[in-house]
Design a binder for these strands. Structure first.
Length: 471
RNA sequence: GACCCCUUCGUCUAGUGGUUAGGACACCAGCCUUUCACGCUGGUAACACGGGUUCGAGCCCCGUAGGGGUCGCCA
């Protein structure tokens, strides 16, 4: 164990490119990233693309884009597992030469039969290959063979898990796993070990669906005389109904969350709190997360997605977000909507009103919805409730309001004073003036403060809208 | 089925033998207010069950139940 203290932490995120970055994978990546940063170590990425049929360049790009969007930058270019097959085979040969592995000529038909029998007898589905102890000379000539690990039969294998504690299993429960297929390619369990070792990974943080497979991986480390890394198996994220996340749970890829208008810092914050806590604190910046996160505070139970809470956290970060950035996001989203006049004027109005808009939105989609009226050319579409505000009587009033407003400098204080004095002068409550005005200006009954809306629209546009509504 | 893991309000969690079991989201009531939000105040709501150990257990041990995961020449 000498040198343990000096050893720099090195973690990795190792997704297989299936076409999306799963929300659970995103959290695993986040934990790996935070753990590495917290300990001043390195965070690496390995694309597990050994299944060539399912792996594509586009799928890999989705993962890269997702990580970049989340702000989880790696310290080295990604390692592609498919490029390392020669090395995987080499290690398997070493194990074979050392007697820690053996060639097995069992056919898949024989394997099926053994499994069925085991099932019928109520035993675990453990394969015991006769070739473990059989003379190679008895092997059928030219028949395909795989290489199996010669796993210990006695004793037990223990994983000192950073999250789950010591987990042990009797070696009699574990069968001799295949490390090299008959076509010479490595199996996942074998490739992972070789790659993690070669990459100098010190801490393997991953979903706890890998926990029981870890025993076999540990056996490979032992067979090679390699020091295994430390493992930390974090619980999985379940859907809102408690079941394993699947298609029917709706949003589950990072890309989808992005289009639904969640901010990356909010998604990270939410994911961080799913399975990890630090006292009563709920909101964590990236810097705070790095300084406070550690693997030992990760919980052991699976957690469920709670979209309401995600929305709340997103609202918090939205309000804290930079106004220029939000205006840019809104403009981009507005560009995909028909019937809008998206010129510099609209851009300016949006930028001016953003500070008020963001106070009442939880997602970028909501923010965009609430800003769209600013880019609408006349005539403004009217929501039914807004139209109801424009009674004959109120239209008359709006003419007077327009006249009063025209006298002002269209500053926030200016319009506010004008509206208040108009209300006072005519014996009305401010609300009875503001609501019809809001309808005229926005086509809605909901908006930021009416003075802010007036200022954002500017004199000409505001008066034109009132004029149109009062006609 | 075998093996492994898990179990505090509806949800996410704090809690490491002595607490009125805390916070957040959601929900309800009220305040603020030019609408809606934000914000503020208050409220409903949890230690899965059964045995131990202990003066004392949400915290330790053992069962039970429930949930999850793994058992591929997939990753």
């Amino acid at each position: 164990m000498a040198g343990t203290q000096a050893m720099t932490v090195r973690t990795r995120f190792a997704p297989s490119p299936t076409g999306l970055l799963h929300i659970g994978g995103a959290r695993t990546a986040l934990f790996n990233y935070l753990f590495a940063r917290h300990h001043g170590g390195q965070f690496l990425l390995r694309i597990e693309d050994t299944d060539r049929e399912r792996s594509t360049q586009e799928a890999t790009q989705v993962i890269l884009d997702g990580l970049a969007w989340l702000g989880l930058e790696t310290d080295q270019p990604p390692v592609f597992q498919s490029t390392r097959q020669a090395r995987h085979a080499e290690v398997a040969q070493q194990m074979l030469a050392a007697g820690r592995a053996y060639r097995c000529f069992l056919t898949s038909a024989e394997l099926d039969r053994m499994r069925e029998q085991a099932k019928a007898e109520g035993r675990g589905l453990r394969i015991e290959s006769p070739w473990r102890d059989r003379d190679l000379a008895e092997a059928p000539q030219g028949a395909p063979s795989v290489i199996r690990l010669r796993a210990p039969r006695e004793g037990e294998t223990v994983v000192h898990d950073l999250v789950q504690g010591d987990v042990r299993v009797a070696n009699a429960e574990l069968d001799d796993m295949i490390i090299l297929r008959s076509d010479g390619t490595p199996t996942y369990l074998h490739a992972v070990v070789v790659d993690d070792h070669d990459m100098g990974i010190t801490h393997v943080i991953r979903g706890d669906d890998h926990l029981t497979n870890t025993f076999r991986q540990v056996q490979v480390y032992e067979a090679m005389g390699w020091k295994p890394p430390l493992f930390g198996h974090v619980p999985l994220i379940h859907g809102a109904d408690g079941a394993k996340l699947s298609k029917r749970h709706g949003a589950q890829s990072v890309t989808e969350f992005r289009t639904m208008g969640y901010l990356p810092e909010a998604l990270c914050n939410y994911l961080l709190r799913l399975g990890w806590g630090h006292g009563d604190t709920e909101i964590f910046s990236r810097a705070e997360a790095i300084s406070l996160f550690d693997i030992d505070a990760v919980g052991r139970a699976a957690s469920r997605m709670d979209y309401a809470k995600l929305a709340h956290v997103n609202g918090v970060w939205l309000r804290a977000a930079d106004d220029d950035r939000l205006a840019r996001e809104v403009l981009e989203r507005l560009a995909h909507r028909p019937g809008l006049a998206l010129g510099t004027q609209a851009a300016h109005r949006i930028r001016v009103l953003i500070p008020h808009l963001k106070e009442r939105a939880k997602t970028l989609v909501e923010l965009t919805d609430s800003a769209s009226f600013l880019a609408h050319p006349l005539p403004l579409p009217m929501e039914p409730k807004a139209a109801a505000q424009l009674s004959a009587e109120n239209r008359l009033m709006l003419r007077e309001v327009a006249a009063a407003l025209a006298e002002t400098d269209f500053s926030p204080a200016g319009v506010d004073t004008a509206l208040r004095s108009y209300a006072e002068r005519t014996g009305r409550k401010l609300g009875t003036v503001a609501q019809p005005l809001r309808a005229a200006l926005t086509g809605s009954t909901v908006s930021p403060g009416i003075d802010a809306v007036l200022v954002a629209l500017g004199r000409d546009e505001a008066l034109a809208r009132i004029e149109a509504a009062a006609a």
